[in-house]
Computed example of a mutant assay.
Amino acid sequence: MTYLDLYIQIDKYLESKLFFQVVEMKIFDYFHHSTTKEKVAQEMKISIKRLEPLLRVLIKLGWVEKDNEKLINNEKVDKFLYSKSSYYIGEILIIKKELLDFEHIGNLLNGEESKSKRIYDFDRMLDVGAKEIEYFRVDTLIKEAAQLFESESVKSILDLGGGSGLFALELALLYPEAQVRLFDRRSVLDRAKSYIKKRVPLDRLDYQEGDFISDDFGKDYDLIIASGIIDFAYNDVKAFLRKLKDGIASNGYIFLYSASLLKDDALINRELRWLSGRLRSNLVTVSKEEIEHGLEDAGLEVVKKTEDLLYPIWILRRI
């Protein structure tokens, strides 16, 4: 690492800080349509002189594009960060930042924040997680499931720790003959029921309350979705994977989603995102090696490694 590399860290920090402040202020709303700096200054009720330094940075970073004197959002910025877009994820990014952030690493190392802050706010994440699934994850799930099963052959599906229930809902729509079960904590299921009811109420959706580590969630499923839950089995990964294996039919499949399955060069991103949670609660994340050993012990094999836009997916079946 050179001296220049050290200063680049400052630039990255400032760029990130600016990004979140601009998103929180919904600055990109002013550039949804082609506009001018004079009009934006007027709408923001500030002087052009004060606006110009910010504009120069937004343009240099590529977030806003300039054509002569006209200004407009970059195409992707407009799709995801214009607050009235149907794909708007600004709220998701802000909430995730709040949940994963740490103000002072020294306080965390000394355990000073652990009693005053929640480790992981499942209720807030449930609200934004549904949007993430809809925008970035459902298409891959549907494509991979459709390649494995004929529509009429699927009779039973389990969405384990299913959160908003969007995976369960989409699979129920894909497989009209299937009974689909959503298994999670009561508070999560209540929110999921409300969310699904607003979209497409289905009698074939079954809700079961419980703890997927300690409680029985049934057997003979054609497909089990286990998304982002294996870290909660850190005390005994092998036992949890055996439980998953016992839950599928002889020709069934498991879709295992986990950031632990990331390629080695991407694992640093996971470590950064989990750092505050680990320090606040001694939270343990399961390693890829533990999962691989657990699969061997459980008698499961990986038939395909793929990924959606957010998470790696290993598709598993009985050996």
Rank of each mutant, 00 (worst) to 15 (best):
N68Y: 11
D127A: 01
E177Q: 04
R280N: 00
D190E: 14
N73G: 02
E98D: 14
L275H: 06
F232L: 15
E91W: 06
P176F: 02
K49G: 11
E209L: 04
D29K: 07
I72E: 11
L58W: 14
I291N: 03
A41S: 14
S187G: 05
I254N: 04
E144T: 05
L202I: 01
G252Q: 13
T2Y: 08
D265Y: 14
P201W: 06
W314Y: 15
A239R: 10
E289C: 02
L261A: 13
S281P: 07
E75D: 08
D159Y: 06
D236K: 07
F183R: 09
L300T: 01
I72V: 15
P176A: 02
K45F: 09
R280Q: 02
F102H: 10
E69G: 11
Y3I: 12
K115S: 15
K45D: 11
I224P: 07
I10T: 03
E75T: 01
I268G: 05
L54I: 11
S227T: 03
G129K: 01
K131W: 05
T2H: 04
S250W: 02
H33K: 06
F212T: 09
G218Y: 02
K238P: 04
R318T: 09
D265M: 08
I313Y: 09
L182A: 01
G277V: 09
S276Y: 00
